[in-house]
Design a protein around this nucleic acid. Structure first.
Lengths: 188, 188
DNA sequence: ATCAGCATGTAAATGGTTACATGATTAT
DNA sequence: ATAATCATGTAACCATTTACATGCTGAT
């Protein structure tokens, strides 16, 4: 059972409970976008494909006259999700223009190295803060609406990783910026 | 001057000195692949495009009868590279299947969470070790062949970031695996 | 002689984003 | 009223990978 990248997010999102394509998209944007993105142009066609393959089934769930299709996993889909999660991960892709600029700064515009490192530190701080606010929001919902809204250990671990790794990176790049400045006093 | 992703790596690589497409590819693979990839299918057509736009010029540099074209930056190309590096970075993309699995493990196969975290720790360790060996190789070349082979501060900073961040992540995921195991003793 | 590595290139397929089109509902 | 948000979908475009094709050179 070959699963596309998008199929993996969809099966994962439907494992917790049935959802519409729109819901999947907003959830991906609010909780997984930092390490895995998906657009409507991928999600809707993939939902059709997964239904065709018998991994999910869609049911009309009109809200008044507003069209809505809620999908849920079939037994086969549940098995496919379990199989996927038992396999070691294949995809790891990073495309980071900030690191590329820093990588080349030495031979193109040495004076900018420190500046790039400082920008990177600020960016890491901002991401950490954003993820911290997601964390607070989850905790708030948990307190207000009871334990059935508590996320599982795995997704909390991923969130904490995002926060702590960005905080670490912010400190690291701040220090790197200072070092780079000291190395070229002509530019200061 | 809009530069494609591939144009950026090429201009950066040619800023240090003239190189062939093949050389650019091997350099990307050995030093930038961890945060920026490029395939032949991108590099060769892009070299032609950049030459057409007057940012680089190619010169035949036959090695016997073996065809070889070495490209170098034009004045316009140097300016384009400088402009690019002065702009704040745009692209940041991460697609990490390991984190996605961990994210969903709780609702699909909770017993695997700790295992995934441990695999992630091992992966981070392996990447750190690989980058450490790149670092040693650079230091060796520096000692043996003199300072003209010493890489600039920026690319060294990126390399150190790769090493230290992966070492940090290895420790972090190892600890997370222990925590996840403690949280579900039934699975142990 | 043969294989690994140097060297260039392209075609097909895949994967993904963006923009557009359409319409309902809810809150201001 | 009107804007924001819910909701689904597709077509055009762009980027990227993979596989293939070709041939030279140096080492074993």
């Amino acid at each position: 059972m070959e699963l596309s990248a998008t199929a993996k997010v969809i099966l994962g999102m439907l494992a917790a409970r049935p959802r519409s394509g729109y819901e999947i998209k907003t959830l991906v944007d609010s909780s997984a976008r930092f390490f895995w993105a998906a657009s409507y142009g991928q999600i809707y066609p993939e939902l059709k494909r997964l239904e065709g393959a018998g991994l999910i089934t869609g049911a009309d769930a009109f809200q008044g006259a507003r069209q809505r299709t809620v999908y849920k996993l079939t037994a086969k889909g549940t098995r496919a999700a379990r199989d996927w999660i038992q396999r070691p991960p294949e995809t790891f892709e990073l495309r980071d223009e900030g690191l590329l600029e820093l990588f080349f700064a030495g031979s193109i515009e040495p004076a900018r190295s420190a500046e790039i490192a400082r920008e990177r530190a600020a960016r890491a701080s901002a991401v950490a803060a954003e993820l911290r606010s997601v964390e607070r929001e989850i905790e708030g919902r948990h307190q207000a609406e009871g334990p059935e809204y508590s996320p599982d250990a795995g997704s909390l671990t991923v969130l904490k990783y995002g926060i702590e790794m960005n905080e670490w990176a912010a400190k690291w790049f701040e220090r790197a910026a200072e070092d780079l400045e000291r190395e070229m006093p002509e530019a200061a």
